[in-house]
Amino acid sequence: MSDPVTIIMIEDDEGHARLIERNIRRSGVNNEIIPFTNGTSALKYLFGADGTGLDHKGSALLILLDLNLPDTSGIDILKRVKENSFLKATPVVVLTTTDDSHEIKRCYELGCNVYITKPVNYDSFANAIRQLGLFFSVIQVPAAAT
């Protein structure tokens, strides 16, 4: 995996965050994971103080996104990321409990790269995350547009 890809995890449920992190680590992915528990702070980090996203120009990021956030909707974050010229190449993995087909379609339309429904069954959950880790290890995260 081309270093240094940073994984941005936007997940309000700390338990979920912990479980995701553990399973990612178990799959052998050791990249840095920066967790955010709400949309606002995540957006602030992603788009920087000036809100242009210039801070992350050229840095390789991967976003793990939950749709049900307390302050903003994950869909909004997805939209903004994909509309931003500096961030739009960043792969976004939507990982959420929502399995509504409309929602899934909407996310793909907005440019999400992978949509994973969190299964309650832990084995499936762990499996999904490990697959994701595998996915991380094979995808080539592009150097963001210069």
């Binding site: 449920d13 338990g15 979920h16 479980l19 049900n68 409990t97 969190k118 299964p119 069954n121 959950f125």
Partner: peptide
């Protein structure tokens, strides 16, 4: 479902 994922996971 969200907390259930946690309960099951942990």
């Amino acid at each position: 479902r969200s907390p259930l994922v946690n309960i099951m996971g942990f």
